[in-house]
């Protein structure tokens, strides 16, 4: 509907443009330049340029003093080989992917159920909605400090458990438990974001569908299963993407709760904590840059694969090429034809 209005509004303007084509075009280009320039400059300066520099630094053994070509030692791809051979880096990659999969598996069902609940009308709904969203708003540093104090061996949680006669484990340092602890904290922290997204998705589902289903005699769960879930799919897909990207970059919570040393022994180190610990904290700026590039490539591959195979139907026309979209449209038309033909039969 909005696009229709926009199209309507655009018409008189384009008519005006036809009157003075040359100066209008110039003006438009200037407008684009002025409006896009800040974004482009920031993007190039803080994304593209660091990336190129990272590639360059990654080929040197370099301590961060002066230029690598002067004070460093050219190492070719040695940094990359060392990284891939380092068992602690392999472990860190493993932990990161456990977090990626773990947060999806834990958060998706809980978020959908919460959203379903909060989509119903009941007293105090606004309050519950706010409360669920609160952890997401609190800064990671505060969340991390709070949980690390609560979960220490002699912390509040174990103190409470001791009142009912349970000798609590070392939630943070025990390698068997630490990853579960991390997943619980992450879920608690980020569930609010997922719930809000799902809730927004649910509210855009037309009420008529439910009414029609009711008339047909569908029960509550049947309606959710056959109407809500399928129509929520685009929201779910976008949330999965955002969650995966967030998990791949996970650094702050782990670094604050475990620190850069214990995270390795407890089995919760991530790719990012490994990079900081072995790059910046160790003064190995060359090696750290190589690790950064590896992380970049891993994240890029995950993102591209997901976009290509899962997200493309949501992004059609926006990001995918026109050619592909046309191809898909043609395929769909063909299928419709076949379907029509089979119906005739």
């Amino acid at each position: 509907m909005t696009s229709a209005i926009q199209a309507e509004a655009a018409r008189p303007r384009s008519a005006k443009k036809e009157k003075k084509p040359s100066s209008g075009k110039l003006q438009r280009n200037l407008e684009i330049l002025v409006l896009a320039a800040p974004a482009i400059i920031v993007f190039v300066g803080f994304v593209i340029l660091p990336l190129i520099l990272g590639f360059y630094y990654g080929f040197y053994r370099w301590k961060g003093f002066g230029m690598p070509s002067e004070t460093g030692e050219f190492a070719g791809i040695d940094n990359y080989i060392t990284a891939f051979k380092d068992p602690t880096f392999q472990a860190a990659i493993g932990h990161t992917f456990i977090v990626v999969v773990g947060s999806l598996v834990i958060q998706a069902p809980i978020a959908i159920l919460f959203a379903l609940l909060l989509n119903q009308k009941f007293k105090g709904r606004g309050l519950v909605r706010t409360l669920i969203f609160v952890p997401y708003v609190i800064s990671e540093v505060i969340v991390g400090t709070g949980w690390s104090l609560l979960l220490q061996k002699t912390g509040a949680v174990n103190e409470l458990l001791s009142y009912i006669g349970i000798d609590g484990p070392d939630w943070l340092a025990d390698p068997k438990i630490a990853m579960i602890t991390l997943l619980v904290i992450i879920s608690w922290k980020y569930i609010g974001f997922a719930v809000i997204l799902m809730l927004a998705g649910m509210q855009s589902i037309p009420e008529e569908l439910y009414e029609a289903a009711k008339v047909d005699g569908a029960g509550f769960w049947q309606m959710q299963w056959s109407i809500t879930l399928p129509l929520l799919a685009p929201t779910l897909r976008i949330w999965v993407f955002l969650s995966m990207i967030g998990s791949l970059q996970l650094f702050d919570l782990v670094n604050i709760i475990w620190g850069s040393y214990i995270s390795e022994t407890a089995g919760v180190s991530t790719m990012a904590t490994y990079m900081v610990r072995n790059g910046r904290d160790s003064g190995n700026y060359g090696y750290g840059s190589a690790v950064a590039i590896i992380i970049f490539i891993i994240s890029l591959v995950v993102a591209l694969v997901y976009q290509k195979f899962v997200l493309n139907r949501d992004l059609e026309g926006a990001l995918t090429e026109e050619k592909q979209a046309k191809k898909r449209a043609a395929k769909r038309a063909k299928e419709a034809q076949r379907l029509a033909a089979s119906e005739v039969k």
């Binding site: 690390s148 220490q152 061996k153 002699t154 070392d170 943070l172 340092a173």
Partner: peptide, 14 residues
């Protein structure tokens, strides 16, 4: 001390 692996050096009473 108990839980020394998650004990910091100088921050706070714990």
């Amino acid at each position: 001390n108990e839980g020394y692996l998650t004990t910091t050096a100088q921050q706070g009473a714990s």
